[in-house]
Structure formats: structure tokens, C-alpha cells
């Protein structure tokens, strides 16, 4: 199948590892993804929570562009995924807002019906492509690697999406098939604080410390994420957490598409592993194709 790819702002540069690995993994699986031409920022939670009509209008522009392509949207960033899905839900349930949005879109000669489906790559990999098709491409297995699958909040909530809201399991299932040991990780959907790292740093540091603590206490070698915000908070602020809490965490944080890329034997650089701040550790490094 073919998908309209919506990378979102953070994947453009700061989280290029996610973008690169998504593209490579889909290429390896012979799935075509076409970037939405000239997409704009979805507005994220920050915008949606303060100005509703405007935020719906700007996120609808992307959905309208995808509708013209006649494709489903693939959005790897959890925030984009939630905002775009929520836009669909609101437009379909509140007709007044739908007509307001179309009135605004008309200024750019666009119109949106509210019918473009928004999908997350994890959903597409597991439900459209399937584990069997992926197994055919596997070059390494993850035997001996212990992972903590961290889903974060916004790909499984607030509305029913593709996995359970309290105990999602698709990533667990995927990497178990790849040979990894999935450790007990009860905080798999607990919040990392998101943008609170900027506005309420102390609170966000505590949330992330607890996540790291939980993963390490349960023996994880690596935390696997699906969201650029979770990834950034856990990775870039690990030093600061160590400073503040006198801990010595050194937990590598990988995107699930990067770990899948490792299983597929893709080159380190192609899946953006060269952009990690934290050393990958012996176990992961031994599997990586240089």
C-alpha cells in the first residue's frame, strides 16, 4: 500500500533518527510513502489547547492535502497523530466547527470532508504489513537484548486507536518475535511530561526519572519509544536527571523503527543511530551494521 507521509516538525531535524528510520524501514518492506507536499505544522497540543478554530483549520490543511492525494496519512509523531486524529473526530461530531474550518480553508482553495484516515506507523507495520512479512526481512535476532517498550500517552489516547489504552502490546509482540526479551514495564503509558520540560522543568524531570528508574530496575538494556517528545525528554535530559537526583543512568533510547532497522540489518547511518546522545551499549552495538 501507499501512504501520505506527514513527518511533522520535530522529525525534520531534531529527531531526524525517527524520520530516517521510518523511511528506511518502509523502503525495506517495499511500501511506498509519499511526503505530503508543503505540509505545515499541526499546531500540536500547545495550539489546540488555546485556540480551537485556528488550530483545527491549520491541521485540516494537511488532511485536505492528503485527501487530494487519495491516501491515508501516516504520522509517526504522537502529538501530530493525536492532533490530526482529534481534528477528524471534532469535525465529524461538531458540524458548526466543520463548516467554520472549511470556510477558512476556502481562502486557500481547499476543502476537507473529514474522511482522511490518520495512521501511526506502528499500526501500519503490525496491521497492514504484518509480522510475517517483516520476518522475511529479518537479518539479526535480538536474542539476549532486554527492552522496555515505552508507548507514551498520545498514540493510544484519548480516543480508541489501534491498541489498548492502558496496556498496549503491539511493540511487545513485535520485538518478542524478533527475539528480544520484553521486561516488565508497568509505566509503558505513563506520561513523560511532554512540553512541561520547558515550562515546569522540575516536575518533568521527576516524571522522567521515574520512567528511567522503572526500566532499569526491571533490567532493561534499552528503552524503545514511539514519540519524539518522550524520546527527547528521556535522552537529552538524562544528564540533568543524573545531576539533580544523583543517579547514574546511561540508558540508550531508541525509536522502535530504529530497533526494527537493526533487525533488518540496515546501516547504522541510514537509520539515524549516529544521532544518539547516549552510547548504545555493548549489546546493541554488537547487533548494529556499520
Amino acid at each position: 500500500m501507499k501512504y501520505a507521509y506527514y513527518p511533522g516538525c520535530s522529525l525534520e531535524k531534531t529527531q531526524r533518527g525517527y524520520d530516517e528510520s521510518v523511511r528506511e524501514v518502509f523502503r525495506t518492506l517495499d511500501q511506498e510513502i509519499v511526503e505530503i507536499e508543503d505540509w505545515n505544522c499541526c499546531g500540536a497540543t500547545v495550539y489546540m489547547s488555546v485556540k480551537e478554530t485556528v488550530s483545527l483549520a491549520i491541521s485540516s490543511r494537511n488532511l485536505a492535502l492528503a485527501e487530494q492525494m487519495g491516501l491515508q496519512v501516516m504520522a509517526p509523531c504522537s502529538s501530530c497523530f493525536t492532533v490530526l486524529s482529534k481534528t477528524n473526530r471534532i469535525l465529524n461530531e461538531i458540524p458548526k466547527l466543520h463548516s467554520d474550518v472549511n470556510e477558512a480553508l476556502a481562502e486557500a482553495g481547499l476543502n476537507y470532508t473529514g474522511k482522511t484516515k490518520v495512521r501511526h506507523p506502528l499500526d501500519i507495520l503490525m496491521n497492514d504489513i504484518g509480522i510475517e512479512a517483516m520476518q522475511k526481512k529479518m537479518k539479526h535476532n535480538l536474542n539476549g537484548l532486554k527492552i522496555a517498550p515505552y508507548y507514551g500517552c498520545q498514540i493510544v489516547r484519548p480516543d480508541k486507536t489501534f491498541d489498548d489504552k492502558e496496556n498496549p502490546i503491539l511493540m511487545d509482540r513485535l520485538f518478542r518475535k524478533c527475539g528480544a526479551e520484553v521486561v516488565y514495564f508497568p509505566m509503558k503509558v505513563r506520561c513523560c511530561g511532554g512540553m512541561l520540560m520547558t515550562t515546569f522543568e522540575e516536575t518533568a524531570l521527576k516524571l522522567n526519572k521515574e520512567l528511567l528508574e522503572c526500566a532499569v530496575a526491571n533490567g532493561a538494556d534499552v528503552i524503545v519509544t514511539t514519540c519524539p517528545l518522550c524520546h527527547f525528554n528521556l535522552e537529552a535530559y538524562q544528564d540533568k536527571i543524573n545531576d539533580v537526583y544523583k543517579t547514574n543512568f546511561s540508558v540508550p533510547i531508541l525509536y522502535f523503527t530504529q530497533l526494527l532497522g537493526i533487525v533488518f540489518g540496515l546501516q547504522q547511518k541510514a537509520i539515524g543511530l549516529d544521532s544518539s546522545f547516549i552510547p548504545l551499549g555493548d549489546k546493541v552495538t554488537s547487533l548494529v551494521t556499520v
Binding site: D38, T53, V54, I58, D100, E103, A104, L105, G109
Partner: peptide
Amino acid sequence: IKQHEALSRIIKKAQEIE
């Protein structure tokens, strides 16, 4: 973005509606 003008028109209109 390339169509920055068009996006600005959308935002302006949406603000007016609000």
C-alpha cells in the same frame, strides 16, 4: 513553507471566525 501566504490566509480567516 512554500505556500506560506495561503496558510496565513487560512489562519487569518479562522481568527476572524473565532
